[in-house]
Structure formats: C-alpha cells, structure tokens
C-alpha cells in the first residue's frame, strides 16, 4: 500500500463516519480524533472500516501509532507490507 492509498482509505472511511471532514484542512501531526472531532465510538468505527479494507488487526495496543493522520498512514503502509 502506498501512502496515497492509505490516505484515501482513511478519507473514505471518515467521509462516512464524520461527514464534511476535509483531510487537507487537518493538521496531519496532531491527534486525528481532535482534528476531526471523533469520539471513541467514531474511532472504533474508523478502525473497523480500515480493518475491513486491509484485514489488519489494528490492535488496541497499537492505538498510539494511529493517533495522527501521518502516523496512521505510516502505520498502514508498514503493516500492509
């Protein structure tokens, strides 16, 4: 998976979970939850969507690596090989 693919995967999921979110408007190095106004239920939905698309476990223990947009993209790229 390329960074662009990872990014558009996140954008697609957010379009459903948090309609109106524009990734270009977000600070990619700040907390995605805060930037896109996501609560824990939204974050769980986001993980679920990414899990469905990639088959990755996205364990709770890895949550820290998914905290920001940039770190989430990096994580998805690395984990998908």
């Amino acid at each position: 998976m390329t960074p662009d693919e990872a990014r558009s995967m996140i954008a697609e999921a957010l379009a459903r979970i948090a309609p109106g979110t524009d990734l270009d408007e977000l600070d990619p190095d700040e907390s995605l939850a805060e930037e896109a106004d996501l609560d824990s239920m939204d974050l769980l939905s986001l993980l679920d969507a990414l899990h469905e698309r990639t088959g990755l476990e996205l364990a709770e223990a890895d949550a820290a690596q998914l905290r920001t947009l940039n770190s989430a993209v990096a994580y998805l790229v690395a984990a998908s090989g």
């Binding site: 769980l44 939905s45 993980l47 679920d48 899990h51 476990e57 996205l58 364990a59 709770e60 223990a61």
Partner: peptide, 9 residues
C-alpha cells in the same frame, strides 16, 4: 478486547 477485531471490542 485483545485479539478481537475492532467491531467486537
């Protein structure tokens, strides 16, 4: 939650 997919957490 360990080892469960997000939808099962």
């Amino acid at each position: 939650n360990a080892g469960r997919p997000p939808a099962g957490r």
